[in-house]
Structure formats: structure tokens, C-alpha cells
Design a protein around this nucleic acid. Structure first.
Length: 730
DNA sequence: AATATTCCCGTTTTT
DNA sequence: CGGGAATATT
């Protein structure tokens, strides 16, 4: 910051386009950077942070907030290269809130040792809340209730506010469950993901002194992916920058893809209204993709009404045509992609520069199988998979209980893991007893007083209590040592080693967890066990994507945001899948789906391939598909349609997708039919609509399924044929 | 109480 | 198809 500063500042402004330079050089006051894909946003943002640190601020006064740990890490690294990172705070919203809430727990009115409840924990607790409200979880699906509560929290609605906003029979019940759930959380000193944000937003709202302190501490705030902020995050952003208005928001309305998580695209659209003094910079030149890829993206996104007009342009080459593969099944689709990738690799392409994106995780399977068969190495962006493994959650649950004894979800997980003779009835009694006595289950167990009514089990429970006591000492150890100790003394290590012959993965995963914690400890020497535990709760899928692994990357379209690859495949461009639509056909947000595809397309630098299958197998049955309307929104020029394997398809070859209408006469209730996958069945109902006929078939196992007749893979079966089929089937 | 078996249900997308 | 829960078995 002293000598050579002039030169350093000069360097930071070097080699930038005019709008980029403007953004980097901006210091005081609100700034909105509308950054199209591949427009060098990260470059601008990191340089601007460095520039601030060289001119008007100390690094410690700069706060940069991202949505994923990966983005935070990358930003930190790229600022470090510029030589000024030290002391800057770069982290995710969730990590920031967790830290601040821990630090200011007394002001927030929560215990210092709160634990973060993940999705599974939350679901268990919601289930419990539903039961305690005397509602049936058959009618009140935990998943649905969970979604509603999460959305309410993202909008910063308390149960009362939620109920007041949309009064009704359903809302009343949800609000009751919500209240009960909050009660349970607070008893257990737990916060879910949404709480981290909402509590922080509320705290900043009401605690002037704290807000003042934080505003003085963080004088320059930068928020990445502003289009994905929800009400809580927006509240935090506003409150943290009230005094100085030094908020720099970067984002792109066309890449807003988290509406389902409560993100409000209006936050970025209204930025200039919120900050009338705001300077707005548009980064529209694309440095990433070929002309043809960019043209496809640009043409597609024009279909959206809710957006800020942007004209994307590039000086890059025209490039190869965008390809559209039409395939017969998901399997042939995957096979063709594997072939394409093989070819790419043979001609010298690097595997790490190739990616496959899909709308839903379940589509990864077919692709994986095809890549495996073709001998192509791949990595999947699923960090969560590791942390959601049984053995890993078991160990972490021990630590959670040690840190926060009130954490009943974790306690019930480990009370009989590994098996120690404490069964369901005993656990039920303990929980009941805790409820009536007002003690936590943990205290009940550890206090050791008369548990004699538990009979033979009381000794085992007592023993478990002693185990917990003896493990307490690990709280002061570094994470790797604590883990080793807990794994050894709890019997988990032995438990998972015994089963080695069948499956050795669990034992290996335990080792891997120790390694991971050691890595973390090395990176953060000051960190406590609690810090590490918090860290494990806040990892995301994308965070696990490593660079330079020499493997093809597979991930969801959501996870792909912010990344780029030379070669990109996007699979499953089928109506209902992309754009995704729920089964109960209340249409989703088509504009958001379009943006999602836009995000996917714009990840590609050189070669883009979109594909769809005419028959898609999902949850065990194959169904006919309709190709995505988005495909028709692509430009005519520069897009090459490839329907090469269509000739190999079975059945009609007249090009019609459904049966002729007069055919329908032959289908009625009682008709015997055969389905490709499910076998023999009988039509039990038939509903004729204007365009489509819905048919419900009951199979021999008693199950029923409904299809659109025109698309169903059903064939009529004659009575005399049935005898034979019967023999075959039985 | 622990293990083996069947059955039932479902999901976008994620911090 | 696959995971988790209810159910059957030892």
C-alpha cells in the first residue's frame, strides 16, 4: 500500500475494456455491474477489490460475499495473485451469517454452541412437528411442508406473518407446524440454513449498535450473483451498507435461477430504484464463447419478458455449429455423447475441458454408465454425497452432541450406533420421559438418576451416558485428533471395519474424513472443532469440483453457473424436463427454465451440443417424450440438427408421434394391453380430452399407471394370446 | 433386539 | 430404479 502503489494501481487498470475499467476504478457509492456471461466479471471484481485496498481502504475493511464456497475460494485466490488479499473477508452468505451469529450470539438471543441442521435433520424435525400437531403426515407431506416453511423463512416471514399474509385453512395448519418446528429447533439449539440468513437479517434490523459496528468494520461490501438474493440476503445487504452506501452488486438478471429458493429477481431489477445514486456498468462483450454459441444463447433469452435488455457481442471466431442430437432413448443419447467425447479426446481435447449438464440429478446415471463403458474418466459435482453418507453423518453426529448436548436429532442418531442394545422401545421411553420432565434426552441419560423403569436397558443407557462423558475431552482437540478419538472410543471404527468383507468403503470414508479435516486444519490453523463442524455443514455440490483432474465433469445446470468449459453437452431437452414441469401440471416458471438453459449454453467456449431422447426412462418406466420447445427457439443459422439414429427406432416409421385418432376406437375400458416394461395389464379408465386421451392401466401386481394414450408404449393383446403370456409370466 | 425382507413412494434444482 | 420405512424373521 506504500511504495510502488502508483505502479500497482496502473497495473490493475491495465488491459481492460472501457466499461471494465470504469467498474474497477469506482470507489465510493453504490455500483451495479450488470455482467453478461463470459464478460470478465470475476476479473473486474477481483481487480476492483485490489484497487480499493490500494487506494481508499484497508483489506480488512472489504467484505465480498458469494453463494458458494468454490466461488469464494476462487475469488480469494485471484485477489491473492494481485497481492493484497490478506485480511479481506471473502465468504458465502451462509458462512458469514454463521460466524456473525456465533460471535454475537448473545445479541441474537441464541446459544453460542448452536448446531446447523441440514436437510435431513430438518425433515426429521418437521415430521416430528407434524405429529405433535396431531396432523397426519400422509396429508401433510413433510417435503411439501418443508418447502413452504423454507419459502416463508426466505421471505422473512414468521409463522404469524405467514398466516396473516394468506389466511386460509391450509396456511393455518402450515403455520401451526411451522411454530412447532421453531419450538423444536430452539429446544435443540439448532438453526437450519434459512435461519442463518433470516436471523442475521433480523438482528441487523433491530440492533443499531451492532449494525453500526459492522458498518464500520466492513466499509466496502461486494455481493456476487446479486440476482439470486432472497429477502433475507437483500435485507443483510441493505443494512450493512446503510451509512456509506458502498455496495457493489454484480449479477445478471438473465442468470437468475434460484427463484424456487426464494431468490427475488426484483432485487437486481430494482437496484437503481433502491440506490438512486447508483452507477451502473454493463459488461456486454463476451470473451468466452464463439459467435454461434453466443447467438444461440442470445436468441433463446430473447423469449423472456422479465429482463433488462442486454446486447451480447463477441469478437471471437464464428466457431463450429451448435449441434442438436435427437436420439431414440436416454441410453443411446448417453452413448452418442460418450462417442463424441471419445472423439474429442482422441483429437487432443483435454478431459477437464469437457462437461455434461442435466436438469435433474437422476439423469446422471445413464451418462455415467455410458462413460464407464467407454472408459472415460469423469467426476460428478456431488460433494454432498460424501457428507451425507451414513458413516460420515454418524461420526459428525457424535461431535454435534458433544458440542451441543441439546441436539436431539444427532443424539438419537448415535444412541444405538453402533448397536449397543438400546432399542426402539427404550428410546421411545427416554424421549417420553424427557418431555414430561422438561429435561433434554441427553441430560436424562448423563445425569444417571433412576432409569430403573427401563429394566435391563437401563444399564446400557447408563453406559452410553458414561461414553458421552468420556468423549467430552475431545472438544479441545484439533479436528483430526478429535475424530480419531471419537471413532475409536465410540466403537464406530470397529463397527465399520468389521463389515469390511462386504463393503470396505465406509472404513475408507472414515479415513477420508480425517484427511479432509486435517486439510482444513492446515488451511485454518486457528480453527476450532466447532469451526470445522460448521464448515462441513455448509459445503455445496459444486465445491467438490476440482480442476485439473483429467476427468470429464458431470453436473446439474444449477451447479454449472459460474463455470466454463471448451466443450459442453446438455442432455434431456424434453418438454417437462427442460423446461421442468411438475407432474400435477401447475406450470413452473418457464422464464426461469429458459434462463437455466441460457446459463448452460453460455458455459461453452467452443463446442456446444444439445440433445434429447424420444423415449425417456424415469423411475423404472419408459415414456414417450416431446422435444423441448426451447429447441425451436434456437436460431436457424449455425445450428445443425442431427437425427442420425432415428432410422434405427422400432415401431412406426411414418414420422407421426402418436396413434391415429380412429385408432382410438379400439381402446376402451377392459381392453387387455401389454406395456413394454410393465408387462400385461388391463385398461381401467379412459378419459378423452380434446387433444389427448388419458388411459389408466392396472397391472397384474395390482398397481395402476396413467399415460397419454397417444404416447404410451402400449400394445393391444388378444384373449387367446393371454394364455401364452400367462405361462411365460408365471 | 438385530437382521432380513418387502413395499411404498417419489424429486427438479441447493446453501 | 433406489432409498427409507414398515414388516417379518431369528
Amino acid at each position: 500500500m506504500q511504495s510502488g502503489t502508483e505502479a500497482a494501481i496502473g497495473d490493475l487498470l491495465e488491459g481492460l475494456s472501457e466499461p471494465q475499467r470504469e467498474a474497477v476504478a469506482h470507489t465510493e457509492g453504490p455500483l451495479l455491474i450488470l455482467a453478461g456471461p463470459g464478460s470478465g466479471k470475476t476479473r473486474v471484481v477481483t481487480r476492483r477489490a485490489a484497487h480499493l485496498a490500494c487506494t481508499v481502504a484497508r483489506p480488512s475493511q472489504i467484505l465480498a460475499i458469494t453463494f458458494t464456497n468454490k466461488a469464494a475460494r476462487e475469488m480469494q485466490e485471484r485477489i491473492a495473485v494481485l497481492g493484497v488479499a490478506h485480511g479481506m473477508t471473502v465468504c458465502t452468505f451462509h458462512a458469514l451469517c454463521a460466524k456473525l451469529l456465533r460471535w454475537h450470539h448473545d445479541r441474537a438471543g441464541i446459544p453460542r454452541n448452536f448446531t446447523i441442521f441440514d436437510r435431513d435433520d430438518r425433515r426429521k424435525l418437521i415430521k416430528k412437528a407434524i405429529e405433535e400437531c396431531d396432523l397426519s403426515s400422509a396429508n401433510w407431506t413433510p417435503a411439501v411442508v418443508e418447502r413452504d416453511i423454507s419459502l416463508a423463512k426466505n421471505d422473512m416471514l414468521t409463522p404469524d406473518a405467514y398466516e396473516a399474509r394468506a389466511p386460509g385453512w391450509r396456511e393455518e395448519s402450515i403455520a401451526r407446524i411451522y411454530r412447532q418446528y421453531e419450538e423444536l429447533l430452539s429446544e435443540m439449539a439448532g438453526l437450519d440454513f434459512d435461519d442463518l440468513l433470516m436471523r442475521m437479517a433480523i438482528l441487523l434490523d433491530k440492533d443499531d449498535e451492532l449494525r453500526d459496528d459492522l458498518e464500520d468494520r466492513f466499509r466496502y461490501v461486494l455481493i456476487d450473483e446479486y440476482q439470486d438474493t432472497n429477502a433475507s440476503q437483500y435485507g443483510i445487504a441493505r443494512r450493512l451498507t446503510e451509512k456509506r452506501q458502498n455496495l457493489c452488486a454484480t449479477g445478471d438478471p438473465d442468470q437468475s435461477i434460484y427463484g424456487w429458493r426464494g431468490a427475488n429477481i426484483e432485487n437486481i431489477l430494482n437496484f437503481e430504484h433502491d440506490f438512486p445514486e447508483a452507477k451502473v456498468v454493463r459488461l456486454e462483450q463476451n470473451y468466452r464463447s464463439t459467435q454461434r454459441i453466443l447467438a444461440a444463447a442470445d436468441r433463446l433469452i430473447t423469449g423472456n419478458l422479465k429482463r433488462k435488455e442486454k446486447s451480447l457481442w463477441t469478437q471471437n471466431d464464428e466457431g463450429a455449429a451448435v449441434r442438436v442430437f435427437e436420439c431414440e432413448t436416454g441410453q443411446t443419447e448417453a452413448k452418442r455423447i460418450a462417442e463424441g467425447i471419445s472423439q474429442e479426446l482422441r483429437s487432443g481435447g483435454a478431459a477437464r475441458e469437457i462437461a455434461v449438464f442435466y436438469r435433474v440429478n437422476s439423469l446422471s446415471r445413464v451418462v455415467e454408465e455410458a462413460l464407464l463403458k467407454a472408459g472415460i474418466a469423469y467426476q460428478i459435482a456431488r460433494g454432498l454425497e460424501f457428507y451425507s453418507r451414513k458413516e460420515i453423518k454418524d461420526v459428525l453426529a457424535y461431535l454435534r452432541v458433544l458440542v451441543n448436548p441439546a441436539d436431539e436429532v444427532a443424539l438419537l442418531r448415535i444412541i444405538n450406533t453402533p448397536p449397543r442394545g438400546i432399542g426402539a422401545t427404550t428410546i421411545g421411553r427416554l424421549v417420553e420421559r424427557a418431555k414430561t420432565s422438561g429435561l433434554s434426552v441427553h441430560d436424562l441419560i448423563v445425569s444417571g438418576d433412576d432409569l430403573s423403569d427401563l429394566g435391563r436397558s437401563s444399564a446400557k443407557v447408563h453406559e452410553f451416558g458414561k461414553l458421552l462423558e468420556s468423549l467430552r475431552s475431545v472438544l479441545n482437540l484439533p479436528a483430526p485428533d478429535a475424530l480419531t478419538h471419537v471413532m475409536g472410543h465410540s466403537g464406530l471404527r470397529a463397527h465399520y471395519s468389521e463389515t469390511t468383507s462386504a463393503d470396505e468403503a465406509p472404513a475408507q470414508n472414515l479415513d477420508e474424513l480425517i484427511t479432509a479435516s486435517a486439510e482444513y486444519q492446515a488451511e485454518h490453523p486457528e480453527a476450532t472443532l466447532l469451526d470445522w463442524l460448521e464448515h462441513t455443514a455448509l459445503v455445496a455440490d459444486v465445491d467438490s469440483v476440482r480442476e485439473g483432474t483429467g476427468a470429464v465433469t458431470l453436473m446439474t445446470l444449477h451447479a454449472a453457473k459460474g463455470l466454463e468449459f471448451d466443450v459442453v453437452y446438455i442432455v434431456g431437452l424434453e418438454d417437462g424436463l427442460l423446461p421442468f414441469r411438475r407432474r400435477d401440471e401447475q406450470d413452473g416458471d418457464e422464464e426461469e427454465e429458459r434462463r437455466l438453459l441460457f446459463v448452460g449454453i453460455t458455459r461453452a467456449r467452443k463446442l456446444l451440443t444439445l440433445s434429447h431422447a424420444r423415449v425417456r426412462m424415469q423411475r423404472g418406466c419408459s415414456e414417450r417424450t416431446v422435444s423441448s420447445p426451447f429447441l425451436e427457439e434456437l436460431p436457424q443459422d449455425g445450428v445443425e440438427w442431427d437425427r442420425v439414429d432415428i432410422s434405427s427406432r422400432r415401431g412406426r416409421s411414418d414420422g407421426k408421434t402418436g396413434r391415429l385418432p380412429d385408432d382410438i376406437e379400439e381402446w376402451s375400458i377392459g381392453t387387455l394391453v401389454r406395456h413394454e416394461v410393465r408387462g400385461l395389464g388391463q385398461i381401467v379408465s379412459l378419459h378423452r380430452g380434446a387433444k389427448r386421451t388419458h388411459v389408466t392401466v392396472r397391472f397384474r401386481d395390482g398397481s395402476e399407471q396413467t399415460w397419454v394414450l397417444e404416447f404410451a408404449k402400449l400394445t393391444r393383446v388378444d384373449f387367446d394370446e393371454v394364455g401364452d403370456l400367462d405361462c411365460l409370466d408365471s
